[in-house]
Design a protein around this nucleic acid. Structure first.
Length: 433
RNA sequence: UCCACCGUGGCCUAAUGGCAAGGCUCCCGGCUGUUAACCGGGCGGAUAGAGGUUCGACUCCUCUCGGUGGAGCCA
């Protein structure tokens, strides 16, 4: 009497060497050589080669195996053994088709263009590369939570619907809200300030939306951001937190996602370099670097992608640039008490040209100054009355930052475009699938 | 919003004023260790759409649609 064979996931095959196992998955690719077939089977945890020998199975089974088409869902029974070259393979003894594709699978294991792949994103996710990226993304998200949870932060969810802009109304998605209008959030920032006054150390983590008509490798209209905010923390503390945070994430990915980094052919030595302390330079020092690099920028202007790349190339790890001109930063940034032209903010530029991954700083805690900034930025005062309350009732120095998940994933994975870092990217000109 | 480039079988490319070519997928056949397997054969498109120049347009011009990259802006 045979006992039912136990289902085993491909990533666990090494623990079952010599045993008979059941794989349940999909056919990734098939190679055939007359009297034997090599089935590449994937099950979500990995890919393994299943070998069908003509003389080991019934002729019908052998013939059927040779006719399987790509992405047929199949159950395979067989014995785990060492692969002649590396890892493990499964010697097939039984095979069952769960469902045969009703049409030819569009994505062959050959080259395809970006537009075609994006149109088939729902299927593209099945490929090795996308599988690796999504697993690294999940690991980064887990690291984000572990970092803050492990440091006594409280997760506080910010709303998605907001009544007005955080920093101006030009680039928000407007949606109907019963008889009224609402906007999709572009930052949980202001709400985290309120939460920090209640809970001390807080963070939010969720999607944010920008209706900016940007068509670059660094932009999505919907992306995920993690935003910590801490009461009684100043700019120096904020920079320290950002540095610790990035180191933690990079370390975690190196510890747990080596195989996925290998699939992506990521140069991990570049990531192994990412150790504290990170260089900290002022905006004005950054201007000097740009001048020396032949990219002179006048005081008062922000940096574009090219400028960020020139600066990041000077260092082998993320660089913290602090104290930008007050005028080009958000209304809630605290003015530098030692130089009123500057804000107590910090941007973190990732290495290898991946651009800004963090923006943050110390917040303006003086009621009068904040009121003046709202006026200067021509923001509707009424919408910010609740925010001003935070300064009326026990205002304290506080600081925080926002880290863009997709740019971080893109950097750690060594990708060329953020669209591959999120399962279903939302971009200008792309809302499907 | 602006700038540049691209659009050729299901997919990736070639042909740049003269008979639309090749590879992959797919189908048929072969091969007992393949690795985006390989070998042989077959099916499949009148070149995104409209108009124009020309004896002749995939190729040059105009417009439209779609895509890609970048600028601005940002994470």
């Amino acid at each position: 009497m045979e006992t039912p064979t136990q289902q085993v996931y491909i990533e666990d095959l090494g623990k079952h060497d010599g045993q008979r196992v059941l794989l349940r998955g999909w056919l990734y690719n098939l190679r055939s050589s007359g009297k034997l077939h090599f089935l590449e089977v994937r099950d979500g945890t990995g890919i393994v080669q299943a070998v069908v020998f003509a003389k080991e199975v019934a002729p019908e089974l052998f013939a059927a195996a040779g006719k399987l088409s790509q992405e047929t869902s199949i159950e395979v029974e067989g014995t785990v053994r060492k692969h002649p070259k590396e890892g493990y393979e499964v010697g097939v003894s039984a095979l069952r088709v769960v469902a045969a594709p009703t049409a030819e699978y569009p994505i062959s294991p050959k080259e395809h263009g970006v537009a075609f792949l994006m149109d088939h994103r729902h299927l593209w996710l099945r490929s090795k590369r996308q599988h690796a990226i999504l697993r690294i993304r999940a690991e980064i998200v887990r690291a984000v939570r572990d970092f803050f949870d492990g440091r006594g932060f409280t997760l506080v969810d910010a709303p998605i619907f907001t009544p007005s802009a955080c920093e101006g109304t030009s680039n928000l998605f407007e949606v109907g809200y019963f008889e009224d209008k609402a906007y999709l959030t572009q930052s949980g920032q202001l709400y985290m300030e309120a939460a920090a006054m209640a809970l001390g150390k807080v963070y939010c983590f969720g999607p944010t939306f920008r209706a900016e008509k940007s068509k670059t490798r660094r932009h999505l209209t919907e992306f995920w951001m993690v935003e910590p905010e801490v009461a009684y923390m100043d700019l120096a503390g904020d920079m320290q937190l950002a540095e610790d945070f990035i180191c933690f994430i990079v370390q975690r990915v190196l510890e747990r996602r080596r195989p996925e980094l290998a699939v992506l052919e990521r140069d991990v030595s570049k990531l192994e370099n990412i150790k504290a302390p990170f260089p900290r330079i002022t905006y004005e020092e950054a201007l000097e670097i740009l001048k020396a690099g032949g990219k002179e920028v006048p005081f008062g202007e922000d940096f574009g992608g090219d400028e960020e790349t020139v600066i990041s190339e000077k260092f082998d790890r993320p660089v913290l640039i602090h104290r930008y001109p007050r005028a080009i930063k958000a209304f809630y940034m605290k003015t530098d008490p030692t130089d009123a032209r500057l804000a107590l903010n910090v941007d973190v530029i990732a290495p290898e040209g991946y651009g800004e991954i963090i923006g943050g700083g110390q917040r303006e805690d003086d009621l009068a100054v904040l009121e003046e900034q709202i006026k200067k930025h021509e923001l509707p005062r009424e919408a910010f009355e609740w925010f001003l309350d935070l300064r009326r009732y026990g205002s304290v120095p506080h600081a925080g930052f926002g880290l863009g998940i997709e740019r971080t994933v893109s950097w750690l994975c060594g990708l060329h475009h953020v669209r591959e870092t999120i399962p279903f990217p939302r971009m200008l000109e792309r809302l499907t699938p």
